[in-house]
Each structure stands twice: as structure tokens, then as C-alpha cells.
Design a protein around this nucleic acid. Structure first.
Lengths: 334, 334
DNA sequence: CTGTTAGCGCATTCAC
DNA sequence: GTGAATGCGCTAACAG
């Protein structure tokens, strides 16, 4: 059912039908009514692809995310989608996986679909290796990085100050009487590097010894992180038996850590304090409940959505905004 | 950059360029090389919308899901996306929310984008009230319902036998010595009705008294379910102090339940056994670990993807397949 | 092997 | 107020 079909039935031309469909003026009241009725009864639906072609605007915005199964990221996607849809954009949300080549591939998919803007969620998207993919394939459209950092004229970044946040976590743990604080880092991402560097600063400022281990493995899906956290906790305690606090790069790692400690007779927080990052629901579920560094995913993603919308309307804006984090104090450290 | 631009640069016609872009035969080796080079150096990307219009095929498939923040559903989406993308389809994944009107609205969005097939995840999409929306707006394209039930020529359903599964849960709890088994139901959905009916059958077969409460509230997001489970556990124990097992409609409800029991001095599973449904990661995280009815979301969604692909190739297939569930036995009942 | 033509469904000028 | 004509970028006959 096209506007031509409707036009024929109504005995008018396609342009008139088009005007009615798009609520534009210049159509007589009676013909408008008549066409409206025909539209309804034939349940006509405009072909957005055709319209896109004609008006040179897809009303698509792309969302790139590493793994839709990661809770922390879907919270962001949820907010962004709502906001975008509210402004008449349809979101094309794609899970890229950890692989860099895949990311580039998906960027091309977005390009082919002629998205008008892109939001990428996750610090991995701020990697230098993606810079050329963005300049080549996302030319002239605004790109907003959630928690990623990149210096490009059409790229806007909104990140949380995790470095500072982790540094504060260290100080916080010191205030609760901890001295031997080990940092359990997750896979190698820009965000995790910032966290690590925050840990180093914190350790330095508090005159502590630097003790850090990277959780082995590379998959960041929830199931896997749990195992990895558990395993790494074991390694930590084997290497540093006098550990009295473990600061983990993500909540899920921290949960795995809690599991290991519980199973092996350690008391949390009495023997060892544990802390995570992300303020996910996992931390509310475990026993004891998990203290965590809230990196404000809702605020960050809302802000990203706003920025993208502003950029789409060619408003001037700053290219980088940094939000503060907050420590959420729960039973695992208190 | 269009094929015309490239054609001009190459001194050939657009059709030749089109042939090269689509890897079609009938182009001389030297011209092909030349065009390929130009394509590359101008980094040309085809406009899929325009192509869709020409070939009358969008290579889009739609995925409808109630809430992208629900873990259990994103697992399904992940699998489906991978499979579809592997077959050259791009997935348009939309979170509809619980509201029925919104669901219809999103169905129309998919229609406008001319998706060639749809997968809907969640039993709510099997509701009768959506039947007309599907017949009107998703005419002649295959629709696969994951865990939803609907009788329509273009609709295929793949569901798990939760009724039977819950019945088995009751019998299982009885075998572990429980007699006063309360069912905590989640919000009113077809799936939850099936679960409830399974509970009723189980209770009847085992000569027990029927005791069921519906968790108040209506939001099914993870955060909320947790609170609701806790609250409902309280109500259950107030009304039935001799309860020795609580069977919950979802894992998250069960986790909330565990929290309440823990905080109020009940021993799980000694005093009261707790069981959930969905086999989510939440059940692996809590203490004690949660026994649960695995409703096979991976198998179900993979199957749904397969069915949709088959339907898109016009292969004959059955309209309804029912998969068995499995009981996962963990500490909360053992 | 390659170019010409037409058409996909729609929006938009410009006449009438 | 309304219609005819044109173009968006691409594919697909059909000619040559």
C-alpha cells in the first residue's frame, strides 16, 4: 500500500496524499478527511526507507555496545533509547563484542544504514585504533562516547572520573583501618587503566605498598567475570597473605572475590574488606552487600543522549565533560 | 559519495559500478580493478536504504523485548543478534516496556522500517490483545514468539513447558520433605499464569494445601523485583507462619525472598527452602546459592532464530514447539 | 562486457 | 487547493 494506491482510490494525486500523511497545510478539509479515512481503512504505513531517501535523513541513531548481556551497559542503552525515541529517532543497537575488527565492521553497518548520530558505550570505543574508523566512516555526524576518550572534531566524550574515584576508594579503605590494599584489575581497557592509575596514586599518597593483579581471561560477560574474580582472589591471597582489603575493578569481579573469601573461611569485612566498581544490582544481592564506586552510568548516559540531541541540532557544546563518582558504602567494608 | 560519483571518476556507467559493488559477473577484469580501487580510495559505502527500496528487501529483522535491563531477556537477544547478523540481517532491537499501547506502537515502528521478520521475547507478546496488531501491521512476514503463545498463520511459537516444570518443582520440594509450599507469583503474564497453574497441579497431585501470593507492584525491572520479593516474603510468613518452602516465579523475586529470610533469622534451606525460575546469574551470586527452574532461554532463543531464518526461506515448519525445563539444584533447597 | 532506461516509495518544487 | 514532474541512490531488465 503506497501513497499512489491511496491517491488512486481517493481520485487525487500522490502529492496530496503525501501532504495529508505528513500533516502539511494546503489540502482542503474535505479531501483531507477523505484521505485520512482511506489511510486508516487500508492501514497504510509510510515506508521510512523511501522517505529517508527523499528527505536525505534516516532518523536513525546508532548505539554501539560491547555486550548486551552486561548489565551496567544495558542500563545506559535503556535510558538512551527512551530519550532518542522520544525525539523521533529509532535506535539501531548493536553488540560488537570485544574484538576490534568487529567494532569497525559494526561501525560500517551503521554507516550503511546512514545513521545520523552514534553513541558508543564503553571505554574500549575510545581506543586509538578506532579513530581512523570513525574519521573514515562516521564523517560529519556527531559521535558521543560514554566513558571513552577521543580527540576528534565530531566526537564528544562524557566520562566519569574513575581515576580520582579509585584514589578516593583507597583513602576510604585506609580510613577504615586497612593497610594492605590489593587492586584486582579487569581486562585491559582504557577505563581499567584509569582505575589502576587511580589506585597507584592512592597508594602513593597513603604511603602504602602497591599490590595489583590482573584477573586472567578476557571475556567480560557476567558469568565469566564471576569465575575470574574468584580465581584471582585465590591468587591474591596466595601471593599476599596479609591482605586486608581487595579493591576490584568491577562489581562482578568483587562478587567472585566475596565468594572465594566466604568459601575459605575469611570474614568480610572483618578479615578482609572488599570493594567493587559500577554500583550494579549484583552488589545489592550478595552477602555481605558490596561497597562500590558508583560511576554514575545513568547520569552519564542521559548526558550523552542530551549531548547527541544538541549536536544534531548543531548547538555548540564542549567536547569533553567529566562527572564525579561517588562511593557507596555497604557491608563489605563497613 | 554515490555510485554515480564513482562512475564518473571511472568513466563508466553507474550500472557497472553497481555490478562491482555487488560482486556480480559481467565486468571486465581491468575495469573491475579500477573501480575497486576508486571505491576504496573514496571509501564508498552503499546506501542500504536506497538498495532496500530498489530490491524491495530491507534485510532488517525486528526484535521486540519488554525491557533491555532484564538479564534473562538480553541473553536471548544476544544469541539472536549473532545468528541473524551472521546471515546478513541487521537487528532492530526495541524495548517496549510493559504497556500494551507501546507494544503496538513499536510494532508499527518495525512495520515502517519494513522488517522482514520479527522475534518477540517474552510471554506478554502472546497476549490476545496484540493479535490484531500483528495481523494488521505484520502482515505476510514471519513472527516468532519466544515463550509466547499465539495462533496465527504467520506466527511461530517456541515455549518451554513451565507449567510442567513448576509442577515438578513442587514434587521435588515434597521429596526433600517440604509440606507447606507457598507460591510467590510475579506480575500477571501468560507465562506466570502457566507457572501458577503448574503449581496448582503440583499441589493437587501431592495432596497439599494451595497457598499462593502475588507479589505486588507491576514493574519487572531487576531492582524492583528485588524489593517486591522481599516484601512478599514478609507477607507470606505473616499469613502462613508454618511455611517450609517458597517457590518464586522468578529468580529475582527469590533473591528478595532470601534477603528477607536472612535478615529475619530464618535458616535456608533448613527452616525454609527457596526456589526461583529462570536460572539467571543472580541465583549463582546469592548466599545460599539458589535452586531454580531452568527454562532454557538459550535453547529457546536459538531455536527461535533458526525458525525465523527457515521461515524467511519459506521452509515448511511447525507452528509451535515446546521445550522441556530442568531443575537446577543448589544450596537453597538441598 | 557495458550503457540506457525505468522504477522502488516518497517529498518537493513549480505550475495551474 | 491540487497535480505533474523531478530526484533521492540503487538495482534490474534490456539493448547494444
Amino acid at each position: 500500500m503506497t501513497i499512489y494506491d491511496i491517491a488512486e482510490k481517493a481520485g487525487v494525486s500522490a502529492s496530496t496524499v503525501s501532504r495529508v500523511v505528513n500533516n502539511k497545510p494546503g489540502v482542503g478539509e474535505k479531501t483531507r478527511k477523505k484521505i485520512l479515512a482511506l489511510l486508516e481503512e487500508n492501514n497504510y504505513t509510510p515506508d521510512i526507507a523511501a522517505r529517508s531517501l527523499a528527505i536525505q535523513s534516516s532518523r536513525f541513531i546508532g548505539i554501539l555496545i560491547e555486550d548486551i548481556r552486561v548489565h551496567h551497559h544495558t542500563d545506559a542503552v535503556y535510558l538512551i533509547e527512551q530519550e532518542m525515541l522520544h525525539h523521533g529517532y529509532t535506535c539501531l543497537t548493536l553488540s560488537t563484542g570485544a574484538d576490534l575488527g568487529k567494532k569497525v565492521e559494526y561501525i560500517r553497518v551503521l554507516e550503511q544504514r546512514r545513521v545520523e548520530g552514534v553513541i558508543m558505550v564503553g571505554s574500549m570505543f575510545g581506543e586509538d585504533s578506532l579513530k581512523s574508523a570513525i574519521t573514515d566512516h562516521l564523517k560529519n555526524i556527531p559521535v558521543v562516547l560514554v566513558n571513552g576518550d577521543m580527540d576528534l572534531p565530531n566526537v564528544y566524550c562524557v566520562i566519569t572520573d574513575e581515576e580520582r574515584g579509585i584514589e578516593e576508594c583507597v583513602s576510604y579503605l585506609v580510613r577504615t583501618g586497612r593497610k594492605n590494599i590489593v587492586f584486582m584489575n579487569d581486562v585491559d581497557t582504557p577505563s581499567n587503566s584509569r582505575k589502576f592509575s587511580g589506585y597507584q596514586i592512592g597508594v602513593l599518597r597513603n604511603g602504602l605498598e602497591e599490590r595489583a593483579l590482573r584477573a586472567s581471561g578476557q571475556d567480560t560477560n557476567p558469568q565469566d567475570s564471576l569465575i575470574r574474580g574468584r580465581q584471582t582472589a585465590k591468587e591474591i591471597l596466595a601471593r599476599y597473605p596479609d591482605t586486608d582489603a581487595i579493591l576490584c575493578g568491577t562489581d562482578m569481579l568483587a562478587v567472585g572475590c566475596l565468594h572465594y573469601l566466604h568459601d575459605n573461611g575469611y570474614k568480610v569485612p572483618d578479615d578482609i574488606a572488599v570493594m567493587g566498581v559500577d554500583n550494579t544490582i549484583y552488589g545489592k544481592i550478595v552477602t555481605p552487600t558490596l561497597s562500590t564506586l558508583d560511576n554514575k552510568i545513568e547520569a552519564t548516559s542521559s548526558s550523552a543522549a542530551r549531548i547527541l540531541l544538541d549536536a544534531l541540532e548543531h548547538k555548540a557544546l564542549t567536547h569533553k565533560i567529566v562527572l564525579p563518582t561517588t562511593i557507596i558504602e555497604r557491608a563489605s567494608t563497613a
